[in-house]
Each structure stands twice: as structure tokens, then as C-alpha cells.
Design a protein around this nucleic acid. Structure first.
Lengths: 336, 336
DNA sequence: GTGAAAGCGCTAACAA
DNA sequence: TTGTTAGCGCTTTCAC
């Protein structure tokens, strides 16, 4: 008698309280089948009164749709994955989908463990996100019984992926610099073995034409420093603008410039890449930089997986999303 | 006949293929009940051969344990939440628990939506994480049918929470400075309305004794700058050490010091707080700072929710976890 | 318009 | 040791 108090309410409780059968209760609650307006209202009211909430597990078991998706991520919750995850979650929550977050640390064992757990839980789809575009997932993701979407990662041919348009981003940066009458634009960037680095470099080279010079290094502020030390130590014409591979490098560049008495943006304009605000906003002067629209990437991926989960078609291929230019104070027209 | 190919294998398929009943199959697979070694092995082999994986939904429906927990987070996937989430996930994955990540953006509507979804999915527990300790959750979390653990947040009395020990952290910083023979230690910190700020300030004051001076501001580099400008513009004795409320402030302090020709650490030693590596490692010199052990916080919370989910008791109360001192180059003995 | 009955895939008494 | 049976909470034909 009293043990009922602690149990969660089931549709049986609703049916009993509303004096109908459980199938009528179900129909009334879901608006399926034919139900008298009166009874429907009564059932709904009763359900609310006794605090009934349908058990998603039971429902999913029957309908074969768990309304959950898995997000497999490659890095230790880095700064790239998170805005993407936020974007994904944002478009899905209102559709009643929940997101399992699985950090694989790029460890195959862990990745497989998470993947199996997701599959066992009958997720409706999987989103794989990485931190760079040219690394294969730590676990085989083809031939899965559920749809897969890749974000900030490229899957096998014919898969669906969303990546930032690096070429567009680089072009945006260089064109901005050119519009400011800068003519000797240097590119200081990250490791050459990153596909994104090569893509941006290529776009930079095309946009700048002759006189293009690319310095490859790592992603650190320190590299930005030493690149400047090197460039400004040598003879010959000096750059009046520097397009950096990421914000950390840009910050290092700006500090090195200040150290040797070169003014930013008056003497040299600087553009970063990433718009990682803890850096870009706090650099002096604040960085003009390229934003990869990570959240939007997540939105699109979320929408895509939603369609796929519903059984609808989504055109395969790599979707390159435009970047945006965030203008702050590290650029400006030349002052002669 | 052939439609079977695309369907997932069920325990029926295993039973049929192994020529046993489904209950025997179940027993063999789970090691429950008594089963002949031979049949057990055979069932297991068959299960593996046909690629059987148990449907977690069906299992959970029956056992009343979903082996999933929800993580409700307050911020837009900030830097605090993520290491914590990684810690939680790390201890749970091997126990077969999965984590739903729910970003509430501190929006009550969204929080309620997520909470209801979690409850509907019969999660075994909920972890609430915030970005500061003195803000109430955006949704009522008491009187839930599942256990709740608070991380980097304090719940109502008698709840279970895990927070960094700010007092210990601040003391660690000040004692370190004192051990380096620094005697005029200034504290430049964040907004006074943060509980953590007040706690750290109090610990600092006690540890320093007379001569303590606290400057409250915001969490930015810029504030670090202007604090230094102010302090070094005035007459009287100058600090030989500065304990900062976070790494961003510390970075601003160090840059401002360099701008006015004060050497770090020779003339003034600086300690930060947070160990946010993008800042602490790239500052020149790299920052000695306090690490709040966020991942460990996540570990403990994960372990706690695991116990609770199993129905075991966990002592209520606020668990304050020790911080650690990360020594880099922004401190050092005085050189006179 | 409503209800009885079947069953999603699985576990757990209990019988054999 | 193994199989039969009865559900978990829900949706969904299909009679009435």
C-alpha cells in the first residue's frame, strides 16, 4: 500500500487513476489513435497530477529509437571540441535528443570501449570530433549500424563531415591585410605536417603572390617570438604585416615586436587564427583574428545527425564552413 | 529469411544458434546461475561469432539501473567544467557507466528541460558542476529520485559536494613566497562578490599578517596591469611578491612589471592561481601557480556517484580537496 | 472511442 | 544443469 509512494509513476498508475485502460492512457497522452476529447483531457490532467513521466527506456525499447546520440571526441576536452559540443547539444536538446560525451584521449582501447557502450545503448547516431583533420579516428567507424557524422575530422570517402574552410579563412586574413594597404605579408604558422597548416599556407601563397614567405614552427607563443627575432635580425625589406597560424603564435609575434620597438598595428599589422578569446582579447593590442565558427560547425553536425536518425537522406561529402574575420586592434591602415 | 541479416542479434539468436534456451544463454553470458562449463563456453563463443551485444535498454528496463549518469553544467563548457568532466568520465567508463553532458547555460528553462530528460532516461545519478561556488543551481535539485553530487558548487546542507580548498591553495601560495624570503606580499585578485575570492583573501591575510594588502578587481589581464601601475606609482615601500587571484591577472601583473623595468622573479616574485596552461606556461617567465586539481575533483565526484548509484552510503558534506603548487620560473629567491 | 493482448530484448524466480 | 514463465513500462494492432 505505502510502498507505492516511493515508486515512480507508471502509465498503469495513470490508467488506474483516470479509470481507463493503459492503451487508452497511452493514446491520450501521445495523441495517437482516436480518443474522446474529454477522456484525453482527463488522462492528461491525472498524469500531471500524479507526476507521471514516461520511462524513456521502455519507450525506446519498443520504438527502436533511443533519442540519444554519442559524441566521440579525440582530445582531452580541448578548446576545439567544446564549442562544437555546445553547438551540437544546442540544436538537439529541443528535439528531445540527449548527448553522451565520450572522451577517447585518442586511445584505441578507450575509443572501442566507448563505442561499444554507445552501440549497446542503441544510440541513434554518432558524431566523431577531432582536433585536426588529418588523423584517422582511433577506432573503426565505418560499417556501424548507426549513422556517423564527422566534425573537424574527415571520414572516409562518401562519409558526411563538417570542417572549417581553412582556405577561406586564410584568404579572409590576407585580403583584410591587403585592403589595409599592406604589401609585404609574412606567414608564421604551425607544423607543416598539419593538413590545415598546409591548406592555409597554400591559400596565403596564392593570395599574396610573389613575395610570399612562410615560416613553419610549432603552435607556441615562443615560436612567434623567435620567428620575429629571426626575421627582424636579417637584412633586407621587412614585413608590414604578419598572418599567424594561430592566436598563440600571434601573441608571441606581437610581444616580440613590442620588445624590439616595432609598433602594432602602425608599423606591422598582425592577424591571428582561432579567436581563442583568452588570448585574442587579452593581447595588447587585442587580436584581429579568424574565427572558425566551431559552434556553427556543431549546429550543422547536430542537424545532420538528426536527419539521419530520422531515417532521412543527407548528401555525403565534406562540408567546408566559412570562417569569419573578427576585427580588433592588431590591424589598421598603414601610417607612414 | 534474409531480413535477419540487417537486424541486430538478440539473445534469441544466440540461444537458437547455441541450441539452448534464452535463459541459459543469459545465465551463461552473465555468469549468473549455474551453467555447465561446456555450454557456457559454447554460448559465449556463439555469441561472439554472431556478433551479439546485449541491448542495454532492455537490460536497464528490467534491472532498474541505466548505468548512465547525467552531468549538468552551468557554463558554456568553460575551462573549469571540462577537466572535471574528463575526470568523471575517466573513472566511470571502466565501470560501464556513460555520461550525458548537459550544458544549461545557466538558463532555468534549459536546465529543467535537461533535468527532465535525464530523469526520463532513468539516470542513476546526477552530477552538477558550476563555475563558482556561491551560485544556486538554475533548477531545483533536491527531492530528486536519484542521488546528486555537486562539484565546484555547493549544494544545500547535507548534500555531497566536492570543491577545491581555496584556503589551502592561498596558503600554499603565500607560504611558498615566504619560504623564498619575500616579506612584502601583495594580493591582487578578482571580484569581491566571489566566495572563492573572499576565502582566498582571508587565508592570505591570516598567513601574511600585518602588512597584508588586497586589491579587488576583475579577472582580466588588464586589471593586473592597472593594479601594478597604481601600486608602483605611489610612494612608500613596494611589494617584493604578488599573489594573484588567477593566472590572467598574474600575466597582466608580470607584463606591467616588465614594462616598468621591474624584474620577475628577481625583484618581485609572482604566483598565479588556476594553472590554466595556455596562460601559465606561456607567460614570460612561466608562472608558478596553484592548481585546483579539477580532474581529481571529477574523479572523486565520479566515485561518489558510483557508490550512490550502487545504493551505498556516502557521507554527506563538503569535501575540500587540497590544491597543489606548480613551480615554474616566476618565483625564486630574492637577489639583493 | 476504448480495451485486451501481444511483444520490444532482456533477467530472474522457479520448476523440471 | 537447464528450460519455462512471468514480467520491466511502454506502444500498437485489432476486436469490440
Amino acid at each position: 500500500m505505502t510502498d507505492r509512494d516511493t515508486r515512480r509513476r507508471t502509465i498503469h498508475d495513470v490508467a488506474k487513476a483516470a479509470r481507463v485502460s493503459i492503451s487508452t492512457a497511452s493514446n491520450a497522452l501521445n495523441g495517437t489513435g482516436r480518443t474522446n476529447v474529454e477522456t484525453r483531457e482527463r488522462v492528461k490532467r491525472v498524469a500531471k497530477d500524479i507526476g507521471f513521466r514516461p520511462n524513456a527506456l521502455a519507450r525506446s525499447l519498443l520504438t527502436k529509437r533511443s533519442h540519444a546520440i554519442g559524441m566521440l571526441t579525440n582530445d582531452t576536452y580541448g578548446r576545439l571540441t567544446l564549442p562544437m559540443a555546445a553547438g551540437v547539444s544546442e540544436v538537439l536538446v529541443d528535439q528531445g535528443l540527449s548527448v553522451f560525451l565520450c572522451a577517447t584521449n585518442n586511445d584505441p582501447r578507450l575509443a572501442r570501449l566507448h563505442l561499444e557502450a554507445l552501440l549497446d545503448r542503441q544510440v541513434d547516431g554518432i558524431i566523431f570530433t577531432a582536433t585536426r583533420l588529418d588523423l584517422p579516428p582511433p577506432v573503426e567507424l565505418t560499417k556501424l549500424p548507426v549513422p556517423v557524422v564527422y566534425v573537424f575530422a574527415e571520414g572516409p570517402p562518401d562519409s558526411i563531415s563538417f570542417v572549417p574552410d581553412d582556405i577561406h579563412g586564410a584568404r579572409l586574413a590576407v585580403e583584410h591585410l591587403k585592403s589595409l594597404s599592406r604589401s609585404r605579408i609574412l606567414h608564421v604558422t604551425g607544423p607543416h605536417d598539419y593538413l590545415a597548416v598546409r591548406r592555409r599556407a597554400e591559400a596565403y601563397r596564392e593570395s599574396v603572390g610573389s613575395g610570399a614567405e612562410i615560416l613553419y614552427g610549432d603552435w607556441s607563443e615562443e615560436w612567434g617570438h623567435s620567428a620575429i627575432d629571426e626575421v627582424f635580425a636579417r637584412k633586407g625589406p621587412r614585413p608590414d604585416a604578419i598572418f599567424c597560424g594561430n592566436d598563440e603564435i600571434a601573441r608571441g609575434v606581437i610581444e616580440a615586436l613590442r620588445d624590439i620597438g616595432v609598433r602594432v598595428p602602425e608599423d606591422v599589422a598582425v592577424v591571428g587564427f582561432d579567436n581563442w578569446e583568452v588570448i585574442s582579447k587579452q593581447t595588447r593590442p587585442p587580436l584581429t583574428t579568424i574565427d572558425m565558427q566551431l559552434k556553427e560547425l556543431g549546429h550543422q553536425a547536430g542537424l545532420a545527425i538528426l536527419e539521419l536518425a530520422k531515417g532521412e537522406e543527407v548528401a555525403p561529402g565534406t562540408n567546408r564552413l566559412p570562417c569569419s574575420l573578427v576585427v580588433r586592434q592588431s590591424c589598421g591602415s598603414m601610417t607612414r
